[in-house]
Computed example of a mutant assay.
Amino acid sequence: MYEYDVENDQYNEIFFDDSSRRNSVSSRRSSRFSTTSHFSRVISKSGRLNTFQVKIPRKYANYFKDLGNTLLNIRWRWIMTALCLVNFASFFLFGLLYMWIAYASGDFDSTDDFCIVNTKNLTGYILLSIETMLTIGYGYRYPTEKCTLGWVVPLLQALVSVGIQGALVGAVYVKIAKPFTKNSLSIFSKKAVVAQRDGKMCLMIRIVDLTGKISIGTNVTMYFIDKFGGDPVVIKQIKTEPFGFLIFPVEIVHVIDCESPLWKVSPFDLLTKPFEVIVVAEGLSVITGQASQNRTSYTNSDILWGHRFLPCVHFDPVKQQYVINYKNLNQLIPFDTPLCSPQFLNSIDKTELINKDSK
């Protein structure tokens, strides 16, 4: 039997009985799973950033200084809570203001000449405040001609209401339109593959833009994070080949050469060394022109060695059109690929060339 030597990137022949082989295999499996399960994704499959910031200086002060970004980054439950609390506070404060105007005008002592008619308690003034913000006219409760401030305050409250509703509705719209949503899952292929392409080892993913969010000026960038050596803080950019524009599903290809972080990665490393490949796709929408960004990640368990994507675009000679079969978008087929790292494969090719030249 042959065992892979990680340090020398080669296979060594070993001999042992069945019991020792079973113990060795089980120990390698347990160590493999204990090693890889300790690490989690930096970027989730849906594109969310899996980080938690601690000991930020003046953290809460910065939240209030930049309320716009705070509203856009908090969860939906806090957006709805803020919407309810701000409106309730506005109703209550303007209700108190109406009550103060009525008290200053002598409504509580008068019997026939009122500034605000048909109410003399806090509940009534709060209802007047709600009617001012949520209706187009007054009914049972309203300010009279005697009450000058009673007509100035509704105007002020209407302006405040427009500001509150405009800010919160705008925040809700931008939050819905944010690119980091579950739509990222429909843009990238579920798996990445490593196989030979034009005689070179390549890492490939498939990308498709069904909604046209990134079809203008599309830019796709890959990053490599090695989690085997310690803290996953070293990020290396992976170069990709130009791919044109997204009129149909295309494959993003990274040629694994001597400058690639995957140069020494072998099939055995996919099982033992945890790493992550982050993919970021940016571009403009063909409908709104709005810039958008989608991202996902592929860990070593998401990368399949010796596979290629099944073709999903073909030409129909009858209709004279290109047909896209989205059923094959994530379909893979086996492909003959050397079971060694690109570095080791390159050394073998050089050795064969040297032997040919010597002959």
Rank of each mutant, 00 (worst) to 15 (best):
T272E: 10
F243V: 00
K273D: 01
V220M: 08
L262N: 04
P249V: 09
S266H: 03
N219P: 03
F248M: 14
P249D: 02
G230S: 07
F245K: 15
F268I: 15
K273I: 00
C258R: 15
P274E: 02
F243Y: 13
K227H: 08
F248A: 14
T272N: 06
I247K: 14
V234D: 13
P249I: 12
I278N: 01
P232H: 03
W263G: 04
P267M: 02
E259M: 12
F275S: 03
I256M: 12
I235L: 03
T272R: 10
V220W: 09
P232Y: 06
G217C: 09
V250T: 05
G229L: 13
V277T: 13
K213H: 05
K264R: 03
W263F: 14
I225F: 07
V255G: 02
I235S: 00
K264S: 06
F245L: 13
E259C: 11
I235P: 00
P274V: 11
Q237R: 11
K239M: 10
L246Q: 06
F275D: 01
G217K: 11
I252F: 07
K239T: 08
D226A: 09
S215A: 12
E276L: 04
I256K: 10
G244P: 11
E259P: 02
L271F: 07
G229Y: 03
P232S: 03
F275Y: 00
S260A: 00
P249K: 11
H254C: 14
K239Q: 11
G244H: 06
K273G: 00
T272V: 13
G230Y: 00
L262M: 15
D269H: 13
D257N: 15
V253W: 01
F224K: 09
I252Q: 08
K239P: 00
L271H: 10
V279A: 12
L270F: 14
K236N: 09
V277P: 10
F224H: 14
S260E: 00
E276I: 02
N219V: 15
S215M: 08
Q237I: 00
G244V: 07
F228C: 09
G244L: 09
L262P: 01
K213M: 09
G217W: 10
K273M: 06
P267C: 03
T272D: 07
V277D: 04
T218E: 03
V253D: 00
K264V: 06
L270R: 12
P274L: 08
V220K: 10
I216S: 06
W263H: 15
T221S: 13
V277W: 01
I252M: 13
T218R: 05
H254M: 04
T218Y: 04
F224R: 08
V280H: 06
I216H: 04
G212N: 08
N219Q: 14
D257R: 13
F245M: 11
V253N: 01
I278D: 02
K213S: 11
D226K: 07
I225L: 12
V234E: 13
V279K: 05
C258M: 14
E251G: 00
P274G: 02
G244S: 04
T240L: 12
L262K: 07
K236T: 14
Q237H: 02
E241A: 08
N219E: 14
E276F: 02
L270E: 07
F268N: 15
S266D: 02
I214A: 08
I214E: 05
C258A: 15
